[in-house]
Design a protein around this nucleic acid. Sequence first.
DNA 1: GACGTTTTCTAGCAGCGCTAGGAACACGAG
DNA 2: CTCGTGTTCCTAGCGCTGCTAGAAAACGTC
Lengths: 194, 194
Amino acid sequence: MTIQTRRERERAERRQLIVTAARELAEAEGWDAVTTRRLAAEIEYSQPVLYSHFKGKDAIMAAVAVDGCADLATELRQARAGADGVRASLAAVARTYTAFARRRPALYDAMFTHLVDLPFATPEAPAPLRDAFGELLAAVAPVSTEEDAGLLTETFWAALHGLATLMRSGRLPEWAHERRLELLVDRFAGPTRD
Amino acid sequence: MTIQTRRERERAERRQLIVTAARELAEAEGWDAVTTRRLAAEIEYSQPVLYSHFKGKDAIMAAVAVDGCADLATELRQARAGADGVRASLAAVARTYTAFARRRPALYDAMFTHLVDLPFATPEAPAPLRDAFGELLAAVAPVSTEEDAGLLTETFWAALHGLATLMRSGRLPEWAHERRLELLVDRFAGPTRD
DNA sequence: GACGTTTTCTAGCAGCGCTAGGAACACGAG
DNA sequence: CTCGTGTTCCTAGCGCTGCTAGAAAACGTC
């Protein structure tokens, strides 16, 4: 039994090695640089081993996305913890979310832009995804009615996502980002000055 | 001079033929199906003629995007014309925008998702782009202060864009779309029932 | 040390965006 | 009508992609 478990452990380690290498390569040079050949060279194995762990390149990106969601959830939690009051929490979460997208664009793309068959808005979604959404929910719920909290969080999330992606692709000017965030938070939290 | 002009006209016609073929192929089978070989076959020319009109595949997509913006602007204008009152206009524009994205996903991607080097938020942006944004602006301005109209429109646009893309990629459930739209319009127009 | 099983690699497929170089065409002059 | 000339267009091919079949190597067992 020990041999079996050792092999399984080694497989799991190598799987993580692939995910980490893909993530680092993507963050350093963008997803276009993450080819199966390049990735194989990076982990010092040949191409086909990638396919013994993942169905294809998309599945690798999905795994990277799950890891990224865990990171995002952590950052959002810290932002919320460091903010006093309902409006400040919402603003902090909004700023942290868009900063994350701007700071790690490749990772963000894998999480929320790239077409990927991860279950999202369902109970069987991976835990990190639900955690990240939960952080948003915790910030939005106080400015919502009880029954609309989930939907309002989704709407707020969509607005942040739109701002992040449109800005990154040059469709929105960056210099006004802070002011747009303020307008958004105003509309969701009400114009009350904290 | 007539020969020269005839040739220029024929070139312009063929250019439009390429753009139209690319757009129809993308809408029918998705952008993955729009390969330069396939597109060349579609217009009954060889591959290199594409490169005598456009710098590359991305430039073709950009041209399709500009066409698409003209369509979107038209639809938004009609939606606004058919709506009475500030809130109804905003709701109609929001519904029309997201419906456009859902009905013509490939076209929408070329316009707003795909990385493409079109000047967007500048005076030298192509007219159809400015027209489409102008329609949004006309709907948002009445619920805004004078100096914030542009920024608030950008923010509203981002929210619509986020809803459209997250929903299309399966990250937001479709069944609640109408309710999310209503929440969004509420937050921007105020909860006044028209 | 020889045998199965499992793991890993070499080599290759079909397709991609894009381009160099020559063939084929339309044109204006005699 | 014929002949150069200049432009237009196509054939062929480059280097790359994601992915996979089948051979080779490493491993555990007897």
